[in-house]
């Protein structure tokens, strides 16, 4: 039993929390969904980004009580949703961020990937300008953003089954290794369609 009933990553979570708790506090300190990071806790950094009814929102600026009756997706829900839709491996966005080295400390990464997922759910082939705009609410203090943009473009190309452009700094290498995830209805774009190290 609980005074709140939240729908998170497809599951119903009855939970007890004070009225003034944000969704972020409930995720982290009641439900142990600590993938959503508590960075600035005031809407500047984007590390707490979650999807609410498909739109990126800041869990630190949303009361838990105001998120009842809405579909919440956290970083923990991306891979299960991808697999439930028939894919293998992780969400292609997660896979691309991994292989493109789009992180150093990793603190911003869950929010970055959820903002990217929201963008790619709306647009199949967003321009670089659109990508930059869509990620403008997610701060990264490590990477300088270059590999993050490359990771998003890698995910776009692989999801669309298109050849991937080699980064300027590695013209001769297969870009970032082969895709581990596959998207329903499409063959993997890497040299191998087999998934590696997967357990369903």
């Amino acid at each position: 039993m609980g005074n709140l009933n939240l729908k998170i990553n497809g599951d119903h979570h009855p939970v007890d929390a004070p009225d003034h708790w944000t969704l972020l506090e409930v995720l982290r300190y009641r439900l142990d969904l600590t993938g959503s990071k508590q960075g600035c806790d005031k809407g500047d950094c984007g590390a707490c980004t979650v999807l609410v009814d498909g739109k990126p929102e800041l869990a630190c600026l949303l009361l838990a009580g105001a998120s009842e009756g809405r579909e919440i997706t956290t970083i923990e829900g991306l891979m299960p949703a991808h697999r439930a839709a028939g894919g293998t491996g992780a969400d292609p966005v997660q896979d691309a961020f991994d292989r493109a080295g789009a992180l150093q400390c990793g603190f911003c990464q869950p929010g970055m990937m959820l903002s990217t997922r929201a963008l790619l759910n709306e647009e199949e082939r967003p321009s670089r300008e659109r990508i930059r705009e869509a990620l403008s609410g997610n701060l990264c203090r490590c990477t300088g953003y270059t590999q993050i943009i490359q990771a998003v473009e890698l995910a776009i190309h692989e999801t669309c089954g298109e050849p991937v452009e080699h980064p300027a700094w590695a013209p001769d290498q297969a870009p970032w290794g082969d895709a581990v995830s596959t998207v329903p209805g499409r063959k993997g774009t890497g040299s191998s369609d087999t998934t590696q190290g997967e357990q369903a």
């Binding site: 984007g46 980004t49 990126p56 929102e57 600026l61 929201a118 869509a134 403008s136 609410g137 997610n138």
Partner: peptide
């Protein structure tokens, strides 16, 4: 205005 996250709220 602000960021995509803030605009959706």
């Amino acid at each position: 205005v602000a960021s995509p996250q803030i605009r959706s709220q």
